[in-house]
């Protein structure tokens, strides 16, 4: 893993975003739209505070945290698509760049993009709705870290699938993350899910983060054992995702698919 090669790819994407207004708009458009819709729903529901549980006011926090996961996923998969769309993939892989270096660079690009988006969303949530995500305290760091790692995992798997099945699979760059949303307990507790989905939710690291967030905002406490479990699951999944990508990259080169997707 050579830092200069990671730096080169990071720079390539930085150049891209620096002057591309549509790409910059895309970075903020959906988060802003989500924030407005869910923010106003929260404001509306808070008028019925006597009959509704308190956690409805946590929608905005859930939204910001979910966006961390989603942007982390997109940071990898959409950046990969940028290289396919510009027919530049072969130039990159004809260089000494390894597949693992490529993925690691995209992870950094994703991290950079989500830090910017999350900062803007946090500021807007505070300005528009007086919602302070930092109420979560230091637990915000492990929460965010878990969501970033899960987003990376989904991004790596998406990239591997697109490499294998070509641009027909590119819709996954946006869609795959949402597949995990219903069982991640983003806006509701795991307990409302049917029992078989509750079992599935227990295997999803993000569900522990969102349960933890609600716990803190409700009672000021959360289970650190559950958070450790989330880290454990994430460590397992991202390791498997790397192995899957590595294996898939070999298969793609063997089948001659890398050059087909790169031209």
């Amino acid at each position: 893993m050579k830092p200069h090669r990671l730096g080169a790819l990071f720079m390539r994407h930085l150049y891209l975003y620096r002057r591309s207004v549509p790409r910059l708009v895309e970075m903020f458009y959906w988060p802003l739209l989500d924030l407005l819709v869910w923010g106003f729903i929260t404001v509306y529901l808070s008028q019925f505070r006597q009959t509704l549980p308190g956690f409805v006011t946590f929608f905005i926090g859930a939204l910001i945290l979910w966006d961390i996961l989603f942007r982390s996923h997109q940071g990898i998969s959409v950046s990969f698509l940028e290289d396919i769309w510009s027919k530049n993939l072969l130039n990159l892989f004809a260089s000494p760049l390894s597949a693992m270096e490529y993925i690691s660079a995209l992870m950094l690009v994703g991290l950079f993009k989500l830090v910017i988006t999350a900062t803007v969303m946090t500021l807007l949530a505070w300005v528009f709705y007086s919602f302070n995500i930092f109420l979560l305290g230091f637990s915000l760091i492990p929460f965010a870290l878990n969501l970033i790692i899960m987003g990376w995992t989904i991004g790596i798997i998406t990239t591997a699938i697109i490499l294998r099945f070509g641009q027909e699979a590119e819709v996954l760059a946006w869609a795959l993350g949402f597949l995990f949303m219903p069982i991640s307990a983003v806006f509701y507790p795991v307990s409302v899910l049917p029992s078989f989905l509750q079992t599935l939710a227990k295997a999803i690291p993000a569900s522990y983060v969102f349960e933890g967030m609600r716990g803190i905002l409700n009672s000021g406490t959360f289970s650190s054992a559950q958070l450790l479990r989330a880290f454990g699951l994430n460590a397992l999944y991202i390791s498997l995702a790397f192995l899957f990508f590595r294996w898939n990259f070999k298969v793609v080169k063997k089948k001659g698919l890398l050059v087909r997707i790169g031209e």
Binding site: H4, Y15, S86, N91
Partner: peptide
């Protein structure tokens, strides 16, 4: 095979030089 089309000529060469 092309170079990234949203970059300038010099930026492309900078990326590959790195």
């Amino acid at each position: 095979v092309s170079m990234p089309n949203s970059l300038t000529v010099k930026e492309c060469l900078k990326v590959f030089a790195r």
